[in-house]
């Protein structure tokens, strides 16, 4: 039978240093700048409420913002989810580039794919945003193609 929960992973190598990437990923107020379909987000303590393009507000609990490991974790607390955990890791590859891994665990499984499916484009948007923010003269490709498993 179809499993109740599912785990989705998307990853992208971004041609920017890990500290630059983390400066965006680790700032919970800036998600709407790079996650597709999110038009606004508001943070109050460990609570974040995002607004989707369809106008739906979605409450989240911020769980981990660890600048040493460069790990960001959050949980969507909307009642549609029985369980949710989003994890973003920014991994320093040592050559002034980064591997960003975005994991989505959820019950029901379908929602894991709905959210996780958007994270691939989110990572591409993140790389594009970093490019636009880069100093003049930085015109190299910002990322390599994503690979993912479902």
């Amino acid at each position: 039978m179809t499993p109740a929960r599912a785990s989705i992973r998307r990853e992208l190598r971004i041609l920017h240093p890990a500290d630059e990437v983390w400066a965006l990923v680790g700032d919970p107020t800036r998600l709407h700048e790079w996650f597709p379909g999110v038009t606004a987000c508001e943070v109050d303590g460990d609570t974040r409420v995002i607004t989707t393009r369809s106008g739906i507000p979605m409450p989240e609990q911020l769980l981990t913002i660890d600048p040493l490991q460069r790990r960001f974790q959050y949980r969507i607390t909307a009642p549609l989810f029985k369980e949710h955990l989003g994890t973003i890791d920014v991994i320093d590859l040592g050559d002034r580039t980064s591997l960003v891994v975005y994991g989505t665990d959820a019950d029901p499984a379908t929602l894991a794919l709905v959210i996780g499916g958007a994270t691939g484009q989110a990572l591409v948007n993140l790389a594009d945003l970093l490019d636009r923010s880069a100093p003049a003269g930085h015109d190299a490709p910002s990322h390599e193609p994503a690979h993912a498993a479902t």
Binding site: P36, G37, V38, T52, R53, S54, I56, T110, V114, G117, A118, Q121
Partner: peptide, 14 residues
């Protein structure tokens, strides 16, 4: 484009 799109991120849904 996919229909299950609560973010309304696909043009044909928006």
């Amino acid at each position: 484009q996919p229909y299950l799109d609560p973010f309304l991120r696909f043009e044909e849904n928006a």
